[in-house]
Design a protein around this nucleic acid. Structure first.
Lengths: 199, 199
DNA sequence: CGAGTAGCTAAGCGCTTGCTTAGCTTCACG
DNA sequence: CGTGAAGCTAAGCAAGCGCTTAGCTACTCG
């Protein structure tokens, strides 16, 4: 049950106590949701009293925002560095494989990223929404390039973009480590996505 | 924002006051999640005092369970009556179109069904889990039939089953009425799913 | 050494939560 | 007409919530 988030991902968070609080919050938010998680729960996962949380973060929502912002940026970065390949087909396969594998490998972070948007303040939501649009554009561009090159046959470009993203995003909902290797899942999904669009 | 659930769907819930509470709960759970929804919120959507809720339902969780159980059964029923067609390809297209359109048309119910499982009691969760397995089997069987008939080329049957389901389920996360006609979306997704598996 | 600061805890404040109680009104039915 | 059940509300209870306060300890640095 208690899937403990890899602390290496959060090495940039200093001091260590702030990092322990943050990883505890990721696990709690992913397992039970933001609203069902108490500040006492987060603090006790970090081995501290509830008040210690407020030494490092001004509110529970701010903790969520830091996780969500970092997670969105990480996902976008994964896409940007995976947009490689000679043809649109190669690029699409690389993008989908990387995006899917990220959602599996970091499924606790991904769950917070994808399913706790409603708990963000309007200002914070607007900030991550910008990143979400960039993520979506990255996929849409490759599909458009593939159509232009005659490699892809796509009837509804925005709809198909959303479907390709959907496939990877939904991994965060159901994935657990016993469901297999993230990289293998990425390959399977790259194949499925490619077949969805190829001419 | 406040997408009001079609009361026609809940005609079997009697008396009318119980139905108003239930549709209010569906809307509130879909918009804000089970944990963020208060019994006062549900009651006020039904135009009643908080105590009136307990005349009709023993707890907030029971309200969630009735919604979730009904929603799961409705989704399974939609699949069972859509499993028609001469070939596995026709059957798959029909299943995916119907399942996808249901998630769009009833996206508030679907959101509760797909994203509030963690708030159910262990006993209630076990009950809906049975229905979820039946839903999954329905798709897996068609894919297996298609492979046997040589119509489909599927490397990883459980993985592909999950992917096909994923595509439709994720509709509940992002769909709003302004995103177009549920039936058209169903056709698009039927096409995408078919292409994912065809030999 | 002495002062300041960072990091923490015990205690608790004001408020909201799910749910209960007591009692009122309406209406079917002998 | 009288009685009981059904359906509702006003009021409120105990528990738990996010967050604050006051104060302690350990460490850095002039």
């Amino acid at each position: 049950m208690s899937a403990v988030t890899d602390p290496l991902v959060w090495e940039h968070v200093q001091p260590a106590a702030a990092r322990r609080l943050l990883t505890g919050a990721v696990d709690a938010f992913a397992e039970r949701g933001f609203e069902a998680t108490t500040t006492r729960d987060i603090a006790s996962r970090a081995g501290m009293s509830p008040a210690a949380l407020y030494v490092h973060y001004p509110s529970k929502e701010r903790l969520l925002f830091e996780i969500s912002l970092y997670g969105h940026n990480a996902a976008l970065e994964v896409l940007r560095s995976a947009d490689t390949g000679a043809t649109p087909a190669d690029r699409l396969r690389s993008l989908v494989a990387a995006f899917t594998a990220w959602h599996a490998r970091h499924h606790t972070i991904a769950r917070v990223v994808q399913y706790e948007l409603a708990a963000l303040s309007p200002e914070h939501l607007a900030e991550v929404a910008t990143i979400r649009r960039a993520i979506s554009s990255q996929i849409e561009q490759v599909l458009a390039d593939g159509v232009q090159a005659g490699e892809f046959a796509v009837r509804d470009l925005p709809g198909t973009t959303l479907a390709v993203l959907s496939l990877s995003i939904d991994v965060a909902r159901w994935y657990t480590p016993h469901r297999g290797d993230p990289a293998a899942l990425g390959q399977l999904y790259a194949d499925l996505a490619h077949r969805m669009v190829q001419a």
